[in-house]
């Protein structure tokens, strides 16, 4: 066996080892229920902002405290706290990926990824606005 082959094997073995250790550190995508079932464990909670519940953010008092309620597709909700201001697109995001841990009744969030509505729905929104505009202009038939 050539040296290069040995090195090749070592390299491939190292690659596999790295990937296995990576897989062991991965987390999971969860709903509110499954996140609650593993308190203290880091998860990716898929939910959206419940606009009917109060959102608490007072930049003068503490610019690093945001709290709101997240609700998942099954209708379960959980209070979320986040130590940053609202992320970009928070308001228009139809889905949030909340990365953090459920602990002591709240979801302590480390980072929030906002998911914008797809382009197509974006179009629909804008189209609706155009419609309203046109209806305002147009004389009724």
């Amino acid at each position: 066996m050539k040296k290069i082959h040995i090195i090749l094997l070592v390299g491939i073995a190292a690659t596999i080892a790295v990937l296995i250790s990576f897989l062991q550190n991965t987390s999971t995508y969860d709903t509110v229920d499954t996140a609650m079932s593993k308190p203290g464990k880091f998860v990716h909670l898929m939910a959206r902002w419940d606009k009917d519940s109060p959102l608490e953010y007072d930049a003068l008092n503490n610019p690093n405290y945001l709290s709101f309620t997240a609700v998942d597709t099954l209708g379960k909700s959980v209070k979320v706290i986040y130590h940053q201001p609202k992320p970009e697109n928070f308001e228009i995001s139809e889905r949030l990926v909340l990365k953090g841990k459920y602990q002591d009744g709240i979801f302590d969030c480390q980072s929030i990824q906002t998911k914008c509505p797809s382009k197509y729905k974006d179009d629909m929104e804008a189209a609706k606005k155009n419609v309203q505009m046109s209806q305002a202009i147009e004389p009724k038939p």
Binding site: F22, L23, T26, S27
Partner: peptide
């Protein structure tokens, strides 16, 4: 080359999820 493979494999988690129906997410 191996680095490229490692990075690509990590990046492909969503593809992996799609094929096998798993729900693996990135680490903390």
């Amino acid at each position: 080359f191996l680095t490229a493979i490692v990075i690509s494999a990590k990046t492909s988690l969503p593809v992996f999820n799609k094929i096998f129906g798993t729900k693996i997410a990135a680490p903390e």
